[in-house]
Design a binder for these strands. Sequence first.
DNA 1: GGAGTGACGCGGC
DNA 2: AGCCGCGCCACTC
Length: 104
Amino acid sequence: MQDDFYDKVYALVRQIPRGRVSTYGTIARAIGSPQSARVVGYAMNNAHSHPEVPAHRVVNRNGQLTGKHHFSSSDAMQNLLEEEGVRVVDDQVQEFESRCWSPS
DNA sequence: GGAGTGACGCGGC
DNA sequence: AGCCGCGCCACTC
């Protein structure tokens, strides 16, 4: 178990400011493994053990809520984003490029 | 120990 | 411009 990898992912995702979103590829690249975007998603799957990790702020590079189905409710992810000020229409983040956040 | 899967991304047709 | 297929890494069966 590469807990380091998970820890890095969680730490990074946790740094995503409220009202902002990020992508799996961005996170993967930030940890130094741009090809591990899939693993980032997998890490999110286990993120349920990390309540401080706003997995709902992480979407694919298209800004689509591909992982919403993995949440408690299919609308939980969208609801959380909307609550933070992120408008989502048809599982698509509006003005995604502007909302996209990258680590400093 | 080997094969299959997945909340992705990029390249090719 | 849109659709199809391959690769990558970690994890599970």
